[in-house]
């Protein structure tokens, strides 16, 4: 019976790592279950860090599972013998504190560099007079129960001017250039979650925040739309708070701005004044 339990416990890391590998390699029935397609410039860093950590914890998972199963397999109970009388081993304690310690700190240092890029260093632009300034947001995202309102800076590239216009749940963005979006919430907490850009940021009412990223055109599948989800419980309509992301080339985006400028100029001005 010992061997039965030993095998049962060994199946845990084997099946566990097996499922992770099936998902990563797209083996049915777990195809399309790995990280969503990455379309951003910095997403690859996050994916690399994730994969690296998964390999490390996978090895530890199998290693500890093996030791556990082996001790169950080998040391089944018998009245004829006694267990080894040992209270521990200081050398072992030191080894298994220091090695994981280094690995963990290594993981931290490695990821901290990319964390700084992703969330701390907001992009700057160099102005005509040689000074630098924070890059201006191209879109203002305003979340409310239960939808996204995207305010576009319009042709002048500046938010809060009369040529701003607004679209519901539709985010059109140019590819291959660094973008900044401004994030606000009108009512409760929401979270701006773009799986394919590896962006997630909670929106806090009364607080102005920013997210920045670059959409890479080579990573885009032609004529595809990407989803925008809410990732912070906001009420009964939380699950239906879906927006869509339309990546566009530079010229397509200019056309889109012009189209909306002509069509909605009067309307948008009124809205902007109301605000």
């Amino acid at each position: 019976m010992n061997r039965f339990w030993s095998i049962l416990f060994f199946l845990v890391p084997i099946l566990g790592v097996g499922i992770c590998l099936m998902s990563a390699l797209g083996i049915p029935p777990l195809e399309h279950t790995w990280l969503p397609a990455d379309i951003s410039k910095s997403g690859a860093d996050i994916d690399f860090a994730f994969n690296m950590v998964m390999w490390i914890i996978g090895i530890v998972f199998v290693g500890t599972g093996l030791v556990l199963a082996m001790s169950m397999w080998s040391y089944s109970f018998s009245f004829d013998r006694k267990a080894t009388y040992s209270h521990g081993n200081t050398k072992l304690e030191i080894i298994w504190s220091i090695i994981p310690g280094f690995i963990l700190i290594g993981i931290f240092v490695f990821q901290a560099v990319y964390w700084e890029k992703q969330k701390i260093n907001q992009p700057v632009v160099t102005l005509a007079d040689g000074t630098t300034a924070m890059q201006q947001p191209i879109v203002k995202v305003v979340a409310r129960k239960f939808g996204w309102r995207f305010w576009y800076a319009g042709l002048d590239g500046e938010l809060g001017t009369p040529d701003d216009f607004v679209l519901e749940n539709e985010l059109h963005l140019p590819m291959d250039e660094p973008l900044v979006v401004q994030l606000e919430s009108e009512d409760v907490l929401h979270s701006f979650f773009l799986r394919n850009l590896r962006i997630k940021q909670d929106l806090v009412p009364g607080k102005k925040q920013f997210a920045w990223f670059t959409i890479v055109s080579e990573k885009i599948e032609k004529d595809k739309v990407y989803d925008i989800l809410c990732a912070e419980l906001c009420g009964w309509g939380h699950a239906r708070m879906n927006g869509r992301l339309y990546p566009k080339t530079k010229s397509e985006f200019q056309e889109f701005l012009k189209l909306n400028d002509l069509k909605q100029n009067g309307f948008a001005m009124n809205e902007a004044e109301e605000k």
């Binding site: 860090a49 998972f61 599972g65 556990l68 993981i107 990821q111 964390w115 992703q118 590896r198 997630k200």
Partner: peptide
């Protein structure tokens, strides 16, 4: 024993989300 075996999974899956960077896609 199953506590130990399962705590290994719960502990290890804590490492990716302990990293602020990897937590971005995994949070919530």
């Amino acid at each position: 024993i199953s506590f130990v075996s399962m705590f290994v999974i719960g502990g290890l899956s804590g490492i990716p989300i302990a990293s602020p960077l990897i937590d971005i896609p995994l949070h919530d």
